[in-house]
């Protein structure tokens, strides 16, 4: 079966974010961008399924600005077979909403007919945690979010999910969508020869209008501001001093 892996180009997780002066968004001009870390885990999991001869082809797809080609090349360098880029924005500050992304992905699924979609559980920019679930709904497929273990057997996926009280194990009929949590695997690094090879792997460029999907946002962004900073605290010299401070402010 084919495995489809949506990947998003986001601000690198080590970069300290700054808000733009006009409060329209976080400033993404001239900052380091990378593949969303959860999507890297999804790519890795897809590649492991291919190595176990469960997946026949791994297709990476990204929706966003043209530069999203970078994260697709990274997925290809890790070992994905081919890539699809849907250029849906020309300004990096325009975030395509999960509902629109899900609609585009649903169209791609109709054309490609994958048996499994592996996605990151959330993007670390908008932290929405929604695209996988929305796509599952639009396709009428089963879903398993926040996976920390995945096993494919007899037309279904057995997924261990990270939930509030611990773990939940569910069995989802294929085709299905599984979203990946931090502890599913540790993504591989791409080797230099594979980075070179990735440049020659097929990458199909598309636009939302090719799929007849309207990506107009449903949410109007009013302001983006930095949260109030905490006032600097004090370093105390001893446990005794700490205990008397805590008693003074009445928290113990």
């Amino acid at each position: 079966m084919k495995v489809l892996v949506p990947v998003k180009r986001v601000i690198d997780y080590n970069v300290k974010v700054k808000v733009k002066a006009d409060q329209s968004s976080v400033d993404l001009a001239n900052v380091k961008m990378s593949m969303n870390p959860f999507d890297e885990i999804a790519v890795e999991e897809a590649l492991r399924l291919k190595e176990k001869c469960i997946a026949t082809e791994v297709i990476a797809i990204s929706i966003g600005v043209k530069k999203s080609e970078d994260v697709l090349r990274q997925a290809l360098a890790m070992g994905a077979d081919r890539a699809i880029l849907i250029e849906a924005a020309n300004d990096v500050h325009m975030d395509i909403e999960p509902l629109s992304v899900a609609k585009l992905l649903a169209k791609v699924v109709q054309a490609e007919e994958p048996g499994l979609i592996l996605a990151g559980k959330q993007a670390i920019d908008n932290d929405m945690n929604a695209t996988g679930q929305m796509l599952a709904a639009l396709l009428g497929w089963g879903q398993a979010t926040s996976a920390s273990m995945l096993e494919i057997t007899n037309g279904s996926a057995q997924v261990t999910r990270e939930v509030d009280g611990g773990l939940q194990v569910v069995n989802v009929k294929l085709p299905a969508i599984v979203t990946c949590d931090l502890r599913l695997n540790e993504p591989r690094y791409a080797s230099l020869p594979n980075i070179m090879k990735a440049k020659r792997k097929p990458l199909q460029a598309m636009t939302p209008s090719d799929y007849g999907v309207d990506v107009a946002p449903r949410l109007v962004i009013n302001t983006t501001v930095e949260p109030p900073a905490r006032a600097a605290g004090e370093i105390l010299g001893s446990v005794d001093a700490l205990v008397s401070k805590l008693k003074e402010v009445g928290v113990v």
Binding site: I11, V17, N126, D127, N222, T223, T224, P227
Partner: peptide, 10 residues
């Protein structure tokens, strides 16, 4: 958004 490094009003 961004791990709480910004707050957005929508």
């Amino acid at each position: 958004i961004y791990a709480g490094n910004a707050t957005q009003s929508v």
